[in-house]
Design a protein around this nucleic acid. Structure first.
Lengths: 222, 222
DNA sequence: CTCCCTATCTTTAGCCG
DNA sequence: TCGGCTAAAGATAGGGA
C-alpha cells in the first residue's frame, strides 16, 4: 500500500485527491451501469458541504426507487396524498364554518339585507319559536330551582326543629336559635318572588359571532 | 483498452463483473469519505432489481441531505411540516365549528339543559333582541316592497293614461283598456293589505343545525 | 479548480476451483 | 454465488503549469 487510508491533512492535496477520486468513482459508476445494465447513483458531499452527484439515469429517480425498496412506508407518495386529503378537509371545514357563521349571524338578526321577504318571515318564525323554547326552559329551570330551594328550606326547618327539641331538653337552653332559623327558612323560599326576573341581565353570553375572524384562513399555501 | 464499456452479454460474466465492480466502487467510496472527510452514498440496483447501497454514514441521512440541497422545495421535510400545519388547522377548524354549532343550537333554543339560570336569561334577551331586529327588517322590507309596487303601479297607470289618450285620438277607439288597467293598479298596490302577514310560512329556512354530522371527522389518521 | 505527466498502486477480466 | 490467481488495464499521488 502506497498511501494509508486516513484523512489527508494537507488541504490542497486533499482537495486534489477529492476531485480526482470523485471523478474516478463517477466513471466507475457509469461503467458499472453500462456493463451490467444496472441503475446507479452516487451522492457525495465535500467537506465544505458542496454536493456532487452522479447517476446512470436520474438521482431523484434512483432515490425514489430506493425509498420504495427501503422502508416502503414513509415514502413521499402517501405523505403527499395525505397532505391533499388534509387540504380538502380544511377547505370543507372552512366552508362549513362560514355557513354556520352566516346562519348564526342571521339568527342574531344581523346581516339580513340579502334575505327576501319569504326568508325573513321564516326566520322570524324560527326565532320566535326559539324564544318560546328559551323562555320555557328558563321557567322550568326557575321552577326546579325554586323547588330545590323549598326542599332545602324545609329540610333546614325540620333540622332546626329537631335541634330545638334537643335544646329544650338540655339544661340552660332557651328558644333563640329556633326562632331565627325558622324566619330564615320562611322568607327565602317563598315561591312567588322569583318567577318574573326576565327583564334584567342584558349582556351577550359571549355569542358575538362576527364571522370575520375565522375566514381569512391560509389553506396550506407555502 | 482491454474491454469496451458496453453491456456484457454473457450472463455469468456479467454477474461476476457486477459483483466485483460493485465492491470496488463501495471500497473507493469508503476511501474517499475517509481521505477527504466527505459524506458519500452509493445506491445500486442490479439488473434483477436487487438493491445494494453503501454510505459513509447512513444512506437515508445522505439522501435527506441531498433532498435539502437539491430542489429544496419538494423534499420530505417541508411536506411533513406542512402536513403538521394542515392537521393543526383541521383541529382548530373542527373546534371552531363545534363551538359555532353549539351556539347556533342554543340560539335555536335546543340543548339548553346545561345552561344555568343566568345564562338562560342572557340568551333570552339575545333572542328577544334578535327577534326585534328580524321583525324590524321584515317590516322595512315589506314597506320598501310595497313602495316599489306602488311606484310601479303608478307608472303603469300613467302609461295607461297616456295610451288611453292616444287611443281616443285614433279612429274606432273606445274606453275599455283604460278602465281595466286602472282597476288593476288601484287594487294591488294599496298599502294596508300586506303588512300583517307574519303568521304564515312556518318551515325552517334550512337552519337545521344538528351538529352531529360534522363532528365525526377523521383528522388524518392513516 | 483543471489538466498534464509519470511512476507506482489498485482494480479487474478471464479463468480455475 | 464466491474466492483466488495473474496479467493487463485503469486509477491516482505527486509535481508542475
Amino acid at each position: 500500500m502506497k498511501i494509508k487510508i486516513r484523512k489527508i491533512d494537507y488541504l490542497p492535496a486533499r482537495q486534489v485527491t477529492f476531485s480526482k477520486r470523485r471523478r474516478g468513482i463517477f466513471k466507475k459508476a457509469g461503467e458499472l451501469s453500462i456493463l451490467c445494465e444496472s441503475e446507479v447513483a452516487v451522492i457525495i458531499f465535500s467537506q465544505t458541504g458542496k454536493l456532487f452527484d452522479f447517476s446512470s439515469s436520474s438521482t431523484k429517480d434512483v432515490i425514489a426507487r430506493y425509498n420504495s425498496h427501503v422502508g416502503g412506508e414513509k415514502s413521499d407518495q402517501p405523505t403527499l396524498h395525505q397532505l391533499q386529503l388534509e387540504k380538502e378537509n380544511n377547505i370543507r371545514l372552512s366552508k362549513e364554518l362560514e355557513d354556520k357563521s352566516c346562519k348564526l349571524r342571521q339568527m342574531k338578526g344581523v346581516d339580513l339585507e340579502d334575505l327576501d321577504l319569504d326568508e325573513l318571515q321564516k326566520l322570524e318564525k324560527l326565532v320566535e319559536a326559539s324564544l318560546g323554547r328559551v323562555i320555557q326552559t328558563k321557567e322550568e329551570k326557575i321552577t326546579s330551582d325554586v323547588m330545590a330551594l323549598e326542599k332545602k328550606g324545609a329540610e333546614l326547618i325540620e333540622a332546626n326543629n329537631q335541634l330545638s327539641q334537643k335544646m329544650v331538653m338540655l339544661p340552660g337552653g332557651d328558644s333563640g336559635p329556633e326562632a331565627i332559623l325558622n324566619n330564615i327558612g320562611e322568607e327565602s323560599v317563598t315561591s312567588e318572588s322569583a318567577t318574573n326576573v326576565t327583564t334584567f341581565s342584558n349582556s351577550s353570553l359571549s355569542l358575538e359571532d362576527d364571522c370575520s375572524d375565522t375566514l381569512s384562513l391560509k389553506l396550506g399555501l407555502p
